[in-house]
């Protein structure tokens, strides 16, 4: 069982400060799979009051949450999965705009968590950041932290030497470099944990997936992906939602067909139907999810095409 409770101490401290004495609304923002829930757990502990906690997992749930007068008579509200508050289509911001209004007019303290790509998009379209006094972003992790976390969850005895090497090195010069340069260097390393850190972008959720799929053996992440612009756009929606109903994707890509894009994203190992079913199998429903181990490659591809900013 994973234990992220010891990570992100300085971010937790910022969160505690924001919620103590005169509490302010806080947005917790991170890359997909990076562990936002850890900070929301901290917020719930810190609020020390009757807290309503909701984890959204679909657009329908988000609509229902905002339509319902769910925040009345509550002193504190924690909402996870805020990326489901909008859909990228005409009239797709109504739910988010009503949510922002409620946050602005409520006496309750709100702690919300957002996928960073969805957050960047939402704050540029609806100025959602105006109602959150504090924005806490989760940082990338260094190789030693990633290695220690993996060692606490998996059997890493075959990589004991690599683990020991990182622990003995202690404070490393490479960790003070900008992320892009650091990961570029670590990707070439012989140390398995450094390569996993590079392939995961210092993101623990992705690192777990990379470790489980032993992806570091494949080598570098050169982008030879042959995706059309439409396929890449569907991927950008997936990156910002992490998992989404097929019907939502259909409204976003309409009038183009979704099936070809999903097939190509599946073949390129970017996406899968939740539950591991064949992506072309259930055409009437199901949820499509982003494969965590491919997040870095997906984001690199989208940045090159300017589909994420």
């Amino acid at each position: 069982m994973s234990d992220d409770s010891t990570l992100f101490e300085s971010e937790k401290e910022r969160l505690r400060e924001a919620l103590s004495e005169e509490p302010t609304n806080v947005a917790v923002v991170s890359e997909p799979f990076a562990g936002r829930e850890t900070l929301v757990d901290t917020a719930v502990e810190e609020l020390d009051t009757e807290t309503r906690r909701t984890a959204l997992s679909s657009v329908t749930e988000a609509d229902a949450l905002v339509a319902d007068d769910a925040f009345a008579d509550t002193e504190a509200v924690c909402v996870e999965g805020c990326e489901y508050l909008y859909t990228r289509r005409i009239d797709g911001f109504e739910t988010l705009e009503r949510f922002v209004e409620k946050v602005a007019s409520s006496d309750a303290t709100f702690v919300v968590s957002w996928n960073s790509y969805a957050w960047e998009y939402a704050r540029r379209t609806t100025e959602v950041d105006a109602v959150f006094g504090e924005v806490v972003s989760l940082p990338t992790l260094d190789a030693e932290t990633v290695a220690d976390s993996l060692a606490s969850e998996y059997d890493v005895s075959e990589f004991e030497d690599d683990l020991e090497e990182l622990r003995q090195e202690g404070d490393r010069f490479v960790d003070r470099l900008p992320d892009r340069l650091r990961f570029g260097l670590e990707e070439k390393s012989d140390n398995v944990f450094e390569r996993i850190t590079a392939l995961s972008g210092g993101n623990l959720g992705v690192a777990r997936a990379v470790f489980e799929s032993r992806l570091w053996k494949e080598g570098g992440e050169d982008d030879h992906t042959d995706l059309s612009y439409e396929d890449a756009f569907v991927l950008s929606v997936l990156v910002s939602k992490e998992a989404v109903g097929r019907e939502v994707l259909e409204t976003v890509v309409s009038p183009r067909s979704l099936e070809t894009s999903l097939r190509k994203l599946s073949d390129a190992e970017f996406a899968e139907l939740e539950g591991g079913d064949d992506i072309g199998g259930d055409r009437d429903g199901g949820r499509v999810s982003l494969r965590p181990e491919r997040l870095v490659r997906a984001v690199t591809h989208l940045e090159r095409r300017r589909l994420v900013w």
Binding site: R88, R89, I90, G92, T125, Y229, E230, F233, L307
Partner: peptide, 8 residues
């Protein structure tokens, strides 16, 4: 406005 903001 929505058509602009949501364009791919």
């Amino acid at each position: 406005r929505d058509a602009l903001l949501t364009s791919r």
